[in-house]
């Protein structure tokens, strides 16, 4: 319960109210201004098995997009194509385009390391390096050639503050990252990612190994990070998608088991009035 005092505002005139309601209507009709990442006619194969079928969608800039859908529908596969993590899977093949700032990243001349710096990722289980908190955060900047101690110190503080972890660890920066709690470790991983100043943040079930308190902290952090980054989150937790995201993409498995995107809309629409019957059945817990 908030302790802030809430004041009763002065009633506006009818004229002012009419104006407000017109403005309100326009604001409700908000269109997506630009897509940071766009996927066009994407097909993905594990060997001969087609895991994604003709996926096309855009991820709006500085917004959180949740990808939901039943197990095995290709959510994680899709998110892994956005920074070419999928390259690491043997015999995997991708067709179609993934555009980052309108440039296709699925071409041979693209610097994959640079793509993965620009598009960071947080995984299901926190995976800090077996190093100190300080070294975890400075790992990326050091790889990129930053050597100056003062600059590294600044990066550590800024990144840990950005990941809402600074106050909890500022006095033990040289202790092992593995000594932190699960929720803290996950925020350390976020700090490690933030340290290399990515533009897009991918989160694959970032809270599934965390308790409710740690989960809420990560969710609050996501709302803050959204001001600077475009966030894509895969989650099985429908409440989390509803709480945290601005847009939601619903995926399904076709009869041939290939994943397809069946509905993309503002999150409030997906969870109050979805257009697709499958989405309705899934978000109301009737299948999946």
């Amino acid at each position: 319960m908030t302790q802030n005092q809430i004041k009763v505002p002065e009633a506006p005139s009818i004229g002012a109210m009419l104006k407000t309601s017109i403005v309100g209507l326009q604001a409700n009709n908000d269109q997506v201004n630009s897509f940071k990442v766009q996927v066009k006619n994407l097909n993905f194969y594990y060997g001969s098995f087609r895991a994604l079928a003709d996926i096309s969608l855009g991820f709006p800039e500085n917004q959180i997009t949740a990808i939901i859908g039943p197990s095995g529908c290709g959510k994680s596969t899709l998110i892994r194509t956005l920074n070419r993590m999928s390259d690491l899977v043997p015999r995997a093949r991708v067709e179609g385009q993934v555009l980052l700032d309108n440039e296709n990243i699925n071409t041979s001349d693209v610097d994959v390391v640079n793509i993965r710096r620009r598009v960071g990722m947080v995984f299901q289980r926190p995976n800090p390096f077996p190093k100190s908190i300080y070294d975890n955060v400075t790992y990326g900047p050091r790889l990129l050639g930053v050597r100056n101690k003062k600059v590294l110190d600044e990066i550590v503080e800024k990144s840990l503050r950005g990941a809402a972890l600074w106050d909890e660890v500022k006095d033990k920066l040289h202790e092992s990252g593995l000594a932190l709690s699960g929720g803290q470790q996950q925020r350390l991983c976020i700090a490690r990612m933030v340290a290399v100043e990515p533009e897009v943040v991918l989160m694959d079930e970032p809270c599934s190994a965390l308790d409710p308190v740690a989960t809420i902290k990560i969710e609050d952090l996501m709302r803050t990070l959204r001001n600077n980054y475009t966030i894509v989150i895969v989650t099985h937790n429908m409440q989390q998608a509803a709480r945290v995201s601005d847009y939601t993409a619903m995926m399904m498995m076709r009869p041939d088991r290939a994943g397809e995107m069946i509905e993309f809309n503002q999150t409030r629409t997906i969870f109050t009035n979805p257009h697709d019957k499958c989405t309705e059945d899934y978000v109301t817990g009737r299948f999946g």
């Binding site: 429908m238 409440q239 509803a242 969870f271 109050t272 009035n273 989405t279 978000v283 109301t284 817990g285």
Partner: peptide
């Protein structure tokens, strides 16, 4: 029950 969509309405 955290109802959604049609159930919520």
């Amino acid at each position: 029950q955290s109802p959604m969509a049609g159930d919520l309405r």
